[in-house]
């Protein structure tokens, strides 16, 4: 499949789902005459039209050179593995930061990221991760007074 055809079909599909959801919205509310529905309907319709148009042109002028879509799920497998690990780590960071506290959580995610990207330099990675989290805590939490969670090690912190 070509890149354009893929984009066109994607837009038409997403647009359609959006359009249908918009149809289910309530009509209007007191003092609001156009209602929360009209603008999304226009946007949804535009996405469907643009998507369908793009797909149509792509199929119609088939002769031109192909620009095949390739996400590299197979050819760049290790890239996708890294992305998957970082995604999970990022989401876990968000969920655990209140419990672990800013310093522990940040050190942990930096360890994951450095170990993943900077393989084979364990000492360097640990240093970077610990420094990164402590310096950022001192900078933001202490100097700039943002409210950062202290979490598990609340009572062990000297600052």
């Amino acid at each position: 499949m070509s890149k354009n055809l893929f984009s066109g079909l994607l837009a038409a599909g997403v647009g359609l789902a959006y359009f249908i959801t918009a149809l289910l919205l309530p009509e209007q509310m007191m003092g609001d005459r156009l209602g929360p529905k009209v603008f999304p309907l226009i946007v949804g319709a535009a996405a469907i039209l643009a998507g369908a148009g793009l797909s149509f042109f792509e199929i119609w002028k088939k002769s031109t050179r192909k620009d095949e879509v390739d996400f590299g799920f197979k050819t760049e497998r290790d890239v996708w593995v890294k992305i998957a690990v970082l995604t999970v780590a990022g989401i876990f960071y968000g969920l655990s930061i209140d419990f672990l506290g800013f310093i522990l959580a940040t050190t942990a995610i930096m360890l994951v990221a450095t170990l993943l990207i900077n393989k084979g330099h364990l000492k360097q990675n640990i240093t970077v991760s610990v420094l990164f989290s402590i310096v950022s805590y001192l900078g933001f939490g202490i100097a700039l007074q943002l409210s950062l969670p202290r979490g598990l090690i609340e009572n062990l912190l000297p600052f």
Binding site: L86, Y93, G94, Q124
Partner: peptide, 25 residues
């Protein structure tokens, strides 16, 4: 290989400072 983790880390911190929201991650 050291720059990328740092950029990633800064992005994570930036996300947190925006709204302190788990969902944002």
């Amino acid at each position: 290989r050291l720059m990328l983790p740092s950029v990633f880390g800064l992005a994570i911190l930036g996300t947190y400072f925006l709204n302190y929201s788990s969902f944002d991650f």
